[in-house]
Design a protein around this nucleic acid. Sequence first.
DNA 1: GACATATAGTTAGTTATGCAACTAATATAA
DNA 2: TTATATTAGTTGCATAACTAACTATATGTC
Lengths: 151, 151
Amino acid sequence: MSNNQFKRGELYSVVNGMATTAVARRLQKNFRNAGLDITIEQWSVLYHLWKEDGLSQLELGNRTFRDKASTTRLIDNLEKQELVVRVASKEDRRINLVFLTDIAKPLQQITYELANQTMNEALLDITKEEIDIVKNVFQRVYDNLTNKDLL
Amino acid sequence: MSNNQFKRGELYSVVNGMATTAVARRLQKNFRNAGLDITIEQWSVLYHLWKEDGLSQLELGNRTFRDKASTTRLIDNLEKQELVVRVASKEDRRINLVFLTDIAKPLQQITYELANQTMNEALLDITKEEIDIVKNVFQRVYDNLTNKDLL
DNA sequence: GACATATAGTTAGTTATGCAACTAATATAA
DNA sequence: TTATATTAGTTGCATAACTAACTATATGTC
């Protein structure tokens, strides 16, 4: 019985991640209130394209922690809303490169503001040190669970 | 610009909650590998019933951070698998009380073990102090976002 | 007692998730 | 160079999420 174990009664609150769920829900609500008709999942894809346009679907899936099937569907929906377009790569025709449209580009500014505002609400009384610890723990937990798959 | 703000480039990793997602996925995988045919969402409901059997759907929704529609469907599926039964309350016939069946009861032991094992994998190198901080931050973030709705 | 309001739960509609099986294109190996 | 394996993406299937509109029961007020 290692000393870094949760008491049973606390297991679920960790697995569920109620805090991150609450943040996501609040951000979604703030998008809606601002008249933005995109889901936070769609936003998570746009977010990475704003940083680097023209990523492949697979790369987008890696960066947003999704499998390729989920990524396909998400991009289907983004394409339906004309926020992105798929362009087959010239070098490797198996690969779809995903590009932002002119409709998507102006959304960056507004959504960043809403995201920052949401984070400020969420992190109202949380210190910089606490945030650093949480981020660090998240990363290590993620590594603990994903590196093992390579062994 | 408050000092407890994430840099833009880090926003998404927080909203996404990649660590908690990874834990959930690993736990789901461990259930499957053990031949258990339940989802972690279903388990989250069973988890609360094992602690206190015969809760109403609404109460189960509160404890698992779900709205009532999601709770309805989840219990539909649990009932389909004969893991729970709905019993109308005698005092108030609007209320469905949810009870574990004899099929669900023996699952408690196995799933708790798998959950503990999963948490041990996830928290391998995380100290008790770090865990306490994360839990505390989660709770405060949750409070920050939900208390406001009451104002 | 009758009418309005609140509450618990269900249903319809849309989006998203994951797994497994599939297609098409590319890379490797005999 | 042909056969085999790998890779990127899609599709089918099942579960789950949220919102909004709905039903049925209970409560509160006049």
